[in-house]
Write a protein that binds this DNA or RNA. Structure first.
Lengths: 157, 157
DNA sequence: TATTGTTATACTCTATAACTATA
DNA sequence: TATAGTTATAGAGTATAACAATA
């Protein structure tokens, strides 16, 4: 019990950490993130670039500010993501005549095609990763995750 | 509909992304992460250093390799975390006579005291953050997250 | 040979301040 | 003045290769 040897072939008990949802959330997210990275690699997309592409495909004309909000990303960090997608000819920045400050983002045909392929791959990926969890539970999890998301920014005071 | 203006005051539909658990997981994790960072700041702990400290407190004599496994962190990345905790006199690296390659990690009194305070703060933090989610749902979510974690590493092939 | 801890390194993600051009 | 996009920058997390000491 006082020797390191006694731990070598046993699992950690994690008594304290097991109580925290944040711990489980992080571990699960690490797995999903790592798996998703592999799944998206053939498309030369990362989680963030893929998310941005899908949002632009689904919301043609969206501005960078609104895209940043939807992605929970700071505006400065979104710039490089949009740059990358534009350089790869997957999206376009179009000037808006009524407000020359904003860009209207639109997917190109190439972008829409890549998005379709990526969505198919991610769908398969998630089916595999979550196959041990029944549909009802999945929906409950999503509902809970949305609630957590909605509480964001509120102070713990 | 083709003008960016039509999107300015409406929410994105996110039709495609909404289907993916990974998207919800990431957004929820971002919120928890940001909130937890604020909660742990007074203790000068981050999510990773706090996790390491709690695991060492709960598993005295644990080696760095086993700690890295428990945290899903690569060994090289754990070194700086352990360095930080040791420099702050929260834990000690002890040589193990039976295997001189490994360090047995143990929390100091100071480390155990800080861990107790941090656990208290995080507990309060999570109570606030998850107060809209009933106990049964929370347990179901944790069970699901554990299942996802357990599937890690398995190929999507 | 294999493993523990380590160094070095690189890439990604996150966060903030300050600038420009437009409104 | 306020907002959209941008630049620069810093901090933190993640991942891999290679090394010394030890088994």
């Amino acid at each position: 019990m006082s020797d390191a040897k006694s731990h070598q072939s046993s699992e950690t008990t994690d008594q304290t950490l097991q109580r925290f949802m944040g711990y489980h959330l992080k571990r699960a997210f690490n797995v999903v993130q790592a798996d998703l990275t592999r799944t998206l690699a053939p498309f030369e997309l990362r989680m963030l670039t893929c998310t941005a592409l899908l949002l632009i495909v689904d919301n043609p004309g969206i501005s960078q500010s609104r895209l940043a909000d939807a992605m929970d990303v700071e505006r400065p960090n979104l710039v490089v993501i949009v740059d990358e997608l534009e350089q790869r000819d997957l999206i376009m920045r179009e000037r808006v005549p009524t407000d020359r400050r904003v860009y209207a983002l639109r997917a190109t045909l190439r972008g829409r095609r890549l998005a379709t392929s990526a969505v198919e791959a991610v769908t398969k990926h998630e089916e595999l990763l979550f196959q041990g969890i029944d549909k009802d539970t999945r929906e409950q999890v999503v509902t809970a995750l949305k609630l957590i998301r909605a509480r964001g920014g509120k102070d713990t005071a």
